[in-house]
Simulated scan of single mutants.
Amino acid sequence: MRTLYVSQQNCYVCLQQETLLVKQGETIYGEVQLPLLEQVLIFGKSQVSTQAIRACLWRDIPITYLSRMGFCYGRILPIARGYRQLSRYQQQLSPVEKLISARAIVQAKLKNSRVLMRRQRKRLESQVIENVLQSLDYLANQAVGADSVERLIGFEGAGAAQYFSAFAECLTNTDFVFTARTRRPPGNPVNAMLSFGYQVLWNHLLALIELQGLDPYYACLHQAHDSHAALASDLIEEFRAPIVDSLVLWLVNSKVVNSQKDFDYRDGGCYLNDSGRRKYLQAFLQRMEEEIQTDSGEKQPKWDLLTQQVKAYKRFVYNPSFLYQPYQIR
């Protein structure tokens, strides 16, 4: 199944028989057959025809509207998505069951961050990275015994601060400077790519959560509110380092992105421009289509990891005795 990204500005998405076309005037930038489509992401100022929207709703294909920087404005969903049978089971999870799941999520995030740093240490001699490895190991062990979600969030925050303190050590392209993680707004090109990547991945997970019939507003670690689908924020944690952070390091160190040409500075922040978004999304798609070997010896694209984890969480909701096991890299 495919996701249709419309990142070029002022495009028009229309329906031609069983195919969505992305056009600008008479120029066709992309096309995808509806039976192969899982979701549509519209970045910035592009239009979708009523016929295309109706066809997507008929086939249970959500359409997401985002700013050019990746902020999600909202989603178009079929009416059936509003009736969630699993929501009742999610609400019935006990505080202990949710805490156990939250522990596993935080521990997996810290361990995945540590694995990525360990891989960087193999090619770089850095005492900073060595110190961060020890800190992440300690915090992951502490998370196992956390007696509240508040303490877990504290361990997660401390781990993120340690992790990003060493992130600059992993950047070998001197055109990119990174001193700390800044989000609202992102303060430099590295932060711009991290924020954009997390938003893209978050929206993918949100679509999968809805496709599986889960209620995205009932989670274990994060608190939901009217505009925050907390379950997507829970499930993204285990994928930040292996998918987004590793991709950003590759884009920078391989000089795929240009610090001057692929970013805009405005409104007090730094954001990917049209060319930067195209480069990022192209690399993201290629990365997610790569095959990896499972524990059973079979090969699967990285896309399947996302679906696999959402389904694992669904099994946990139906039967909490099957504890949720987050994805961990080795």
Results as ranks from 00 to 15, higher is better:
S126C: 04
L139D: 02
E290W: 03
G154L: 08
A140M: 03
R114N: 01
E289Y: 08
F239W: 09
K45Y: 07
S126M: 01
S275R: 10
S275I: 09
K255L: 09
S246H: 05
G30Y: 05
K111D: 10
L251A: 14
T27P: 01
I129P: 00
I236T: 14
Y198K: 13
H204I: 06
D267E: 11
A80L: 04
Q127C: 04
I79T: 14
L206F: 10
A207E: 06
V144H: 09
G70A: 08
Y73W: 11
N131Q: 11
Y271S: 09
R330T: 15
R54D: 14
P186T: 09
D245Q: 05
F164C: 00
Q16K: 14
A283T: 02
N112Q: 03
Q51K: 13
Y138E: 12
C56V: 11
L247E: 05
R2T: 09
A180V: 05
L34Y: 07
Y327R: 08
Y138W: 10
L235V: 03
M1Y: 11
V248S: 05
L37H: 13
Y83A: 04
S46P: 02
G70S: 10
V190M: 03
P216A: 14
A230I: 11
M117L: 13
N131A: 13
L99Y: 14
E150K: 12
I243Y: 03
V200L: 15
L36I: 04
Q24F: 12
V144F: 10
Q282H: 08
R68S: 13
R181K: 11
R181C: 02
T182G: 05
L305N: 12
E97N: 10
T182P: 01
G30A: 09
Y83C: 01
Q8R: 14
G154H: 05
L36H: 12
Q17L: 05
L251V: 06
T19A: 02
T294R: 15
A80S: 13
A192V: 05
V132H: 02
D262I: 04
V32C: 13
L99Q: 08
